[in-house]
Design a protein around this nucleic acid. Sequence first.
DNA 1: ACATAGGCACACCGCCACAA
DNA 2: TTGTGGCGGTGTGCCTATGT
Length: 231
Amino acid sequence: MRRADRLFEIIQILRRRRGVTTAQDLAEELEVSVRTVYRDIVALQAQRVPIEGEAGIGYVLRQGYDLPPLMFTQDEIEALLLGTRITQTWGDPELAKAAKNVIAKIGAVLPDNLRPSIMSQSIAAPSSGSQVPVETDLARVRQWIREKRKLHFNYQTAEGKGSNRTIWPLTLAFFGPVWNILGWCELRQDFRAFRPDRMIGVDFLDDMFPDQPGRRLIDFLKREGYELEDF
DNA sequence: ACATAGGCACACCGCCACAA
DNA sequence: TTGTGGCGGTGTGCCTATGT
């Protein structure tokens, strides 16, 4: 991470956390030493960013401080456009609607010279016709992932073999053209990926699952050698 | 109940070494 | 040259135990 990016990130972290944040916390999140954080804080304070540090307490960003207005580059707009176009095509109806709203909201705040970019068809992600129809309510699956609630269903393999599964859904991943629900499978006692189009009789259970080390998404990603930001 | 001392956690600084 | 990490040290605020 470039230093300028890190300085920006420090402000974002302090804004996000609102309360007191120690240099140690910042160092861990930014993956730099505490010494570097101290230097960065001094640099920000020199730029008149109202960060207050107190010995034995931590750092606080004075309320009311705001960054200068953000503006997107052409590439950033097209990245957003691509993401929302893909979501509109491949996401569930609720996500598709949300993607449309995102475009409308961003378009409303862009300056006149950039607005045509977000409204244009310069980036498209039309359906190739290879979409696999899914009966499972993916919007509700997303909700269950957020709320850490279990799913129960009968899973059909490609060979037509069925088995009853109760899983701890961790993430909904799109491996075009199919969606996969990655979760901890109670039957196999291991991580498994399930295609929603092969899940029959999905039962959205009220049972919640714990944030148990070894069974979290981060544990799966580590095991498979994924970087969190790449997944 | 109040004052004090000590421990702890943290901010902050200077210095040095190292790498790009 | 610049950015970074590590180390050692100082100052400060909070909390708790202890003494009056």
